[in-house]
Nucleic acid binder design. Structure first.
Length: 543
RNA sequence: CGGGGUGUAGCGCAGCCUGGUAGCGUACACGUCUGGGGGGCGUGGGGUCGCGGGUUCAAAUCCCGCCACCCCGACCA
């Protein structure tokens, strides 16, 4: 029985990534290739084997969700692991994450933060100290109860949990680190002189989600979590807002993803926070994605862990806290913001390879000549700090390489053949616009350097135009429901109650994504209850 | 947890209904002709058919049980 929805596909596997393979005994079968991918970073060459499929993608209009999945798998970003809900981040995907990390890490340090590392395990008694926090995370925790295995006496060759190794107290695999960190801060803080503490941690966390999606929601994910301690409320709020600004800056300028800065409603707040600030992005399918959060934790954790300091006036005060984080989920945002039916589209600032040069040749002489020229150009580009790769691999044909680098989102491709050599030209192809032009080698590197900026900006502008055109103001519940079908953000009045928010969520699946920070005050009537409202909020269906 | 699927070569799949030599494509190896958008031809290697029982002279195929994963929903960054 055919359940796959793709046209003509006979697969009975609805999630089949490889549709063409289901065209039994027909043309265009699945192709999977091992290619050697070479990236040059700081003169060091990394050779990595990638397993890549080169068959066509499901189109976005056909099935957005499947397009996303196929793309992540086929572009070699990540794959499902043997562990349910956990993914393997593959070298190409990880190299993008590394670039994100590097940029963010510098931004954190430039704003006065230092990195540290805290334990993976949180004793259960720590987690339960802050009540709201405990309740919020209780349902999704991995729990360590024993510390030893033994050979099963009844089942040779099998292991069993040694019942004698039961822990006195269960350890929770961190879903986030507030508890263990604030327990630690207790020992670090006595006086106002010890404040502020501005620490970031790069780590993995585990949240036992019922349903997972590559990058967007996995049981284990990589992130950074900042945890700061301050003497005053005002200082902590300033920190919270500052880091939200860092996130917005990073999303927009490095990832080319436009975001809306805002605060969450009490319903959507982080468990244990007094205020949750967020950046919200809009994906191509009209669904919103929370891209980062920054929390003002008040004195909740200080009180729970009894973290006090002595003021200049020799008085005891509880410490004020913030925490903030972004995760590998941003990888999902990156893909769903820019990529198309031909594969990944990467902004130059994050692309592991920014320019690929493909020599085209028939004879050995032509090979030597084109590769020599390619290397000359590459040297010039590298001198300008551009990440460039010359693909002189003779195992693959030019056409294959073109398709391959397009799929992997390399921003610019140069092709050099005998014809170009004769005319001192190269063929330059842009991934984002899919345009090609033949241009002179003279002044090429400067042109490309400029082009990198142009592509970066162009991607952002394109995404922003889409986002801006997807914000719709409505003034009635009927309008609201109609607008929801189109996707995007909906700007509407809300009476400010959790009941109304919940009812709208149940009836329409839309949630309040945020109350934008720069929101103008405006009197109106709640779209559901008609009660007075002083400002619009942004609703959307979210990932 | 509810609903729907799938486990057969590295990957994608057919074969199962109607039991009888494990097959196709691709990838891989070698040869050869090729080479400006995913090459052609030829040869070759590669398998605990998810696991455990049962029926049978004989099980990938029929029966029972189990496991795993994927997709859709509720929960969440």
């Amino acid at each position: 029985m055919t359940t796959c929805q793709k046209d003509q596909c006979k697969s009975n596997q609805p999630n089949s990534v490889f549709h063409a393979a289901s065209f039994t005994n027909l043309i265009n079968p699945t192709k999977i290739l091992i290619v050697t991918f070479v990236s040059s970073l700081n003169s060091v060459k990394f050779y990595t084997k990638y397993l890549i499929s080169v068959e066509k993608l499901t189109s976005r209009s056909e099935n957005y969700s499947q397009w996303y999945n196929d793309l992540v798998l086929k572009a070699g970003m990540a794959e499902h692991s043997a562990v349910k809900g956990c993914m393997v981040i593959k070298p190409y995907g990880y190299s993008i994450w590394e670039r994100m990390q590097q940029t963010l890490d510098k931004m954190f340090k430039d704003t006065g933060h230092e990195n540290a590392y805290f334990p993976l395990f949180v004793p259960k008694s720590f987690l339960e100290k802050e009540e709201g926090h405990a309740e919020g995370f209780a349902k999704e925790c991995a729990v360590v109860t024993h510390h030893r295995l033994m050979v099963d006496p009844d089942n040779p060759g099998k292991l069993m949990v040694d019942p004698k190794s039961k822990l006195e107290e269960e350890l929770i695999v961190r879903p986030t680190s507030e508890a263990i960190i604030w327990n630690t801060y207790k020992g670090w803080i006595q006086s106002y002189r010890d404040l502020p503490i501005l620490i970031n941690q790069w780590a993995n966390v585990v949240r036992w989600e019922m349903r997972t999606r590559l990058f967007l929601r996995t049981a284990e994910f990589l992130w950074q979590e900042g945890h700061t301690a301050h003497a005053t409320s005002a200082e902590a709020i300033e920190e919270t807002e500052k880091m939200l600004g860092v996130y917005a800056d990073f999303a927009e300028n490095t990832m080319a993803i436009p975001v809306i800065k805002g605060i969450k409603t009490p319903n959507e707040r982080f468990a244990g926070a007094l205020e949750t600030y967020c950046i919200e992005a809009l994906m191509q399918d009209g669904k919103a994605l929370q891209a980062g959060t920054s929390h003002f934790l008040g004195q909740n954790f200080a009180k729970a862990f009894e973290v006090k300091y002595i003021t200049k006036e020799n008085k005891q005060e509880f410490v004020w806290a913030t925490s903030w984080g972004v995760s590998t989920r941003l990888m999902g945002a990156l893909i769903m913001t820019h990529s198309d039916d031909q594969g990944l589209v990467l902004p130059p600032r994050l692309a592991p390879v920014q320019v690929v040069i493909v020599p085209i040749y028939k004879t050995d002489e032509e090979f030597k000549a084109t590769v020599t020229k390619a290397n000359e150009i590459a040297t010039e580009l590298k001198a300008l700090g551009i990440r460039v790769k010359v693909d002189d691999d003779d195992k693959y044909k030019p056409g294959w390489k073109f398709a391959e680098y397009e799929f992997k989102g390399v921003p610019v491709r140069l092709a050099i053949g005998p014809r170009d050599l004769a005319n001192n030209n190269v063929e330059l192809a842009r991934r984002d616009t899919k345009t090609k032009e033949v241009i002179s080698v003279n002044g090429l590197s400067a042109h490309i350097q400029q082009l990198m900026e142009e592509i970066q900006t162009s991607l952002f502008n394109k995404a922003k135009a889409f986002r801006d055109s997807s914000i719709r103001e409505v003034n009635s519940y009927e309008e609201f429901k109609t607008a929801l079908e189109k996707g995007g953000f909906i700007s509407a009045h809300w009476d400010g109650t959790a009941e109304t928010e919940e009812k709208i969520k149940v009836e329409t699946k839309a949630t309040i994504r945020c109350i934008p920070l720069d929101n103008p005050k405006e009197n109106g009537a709640c779209i559901l209850t008609g009660k007075p409202s002083t400002q619009r909020v942004l609703f959307a269906i979210a990932y």
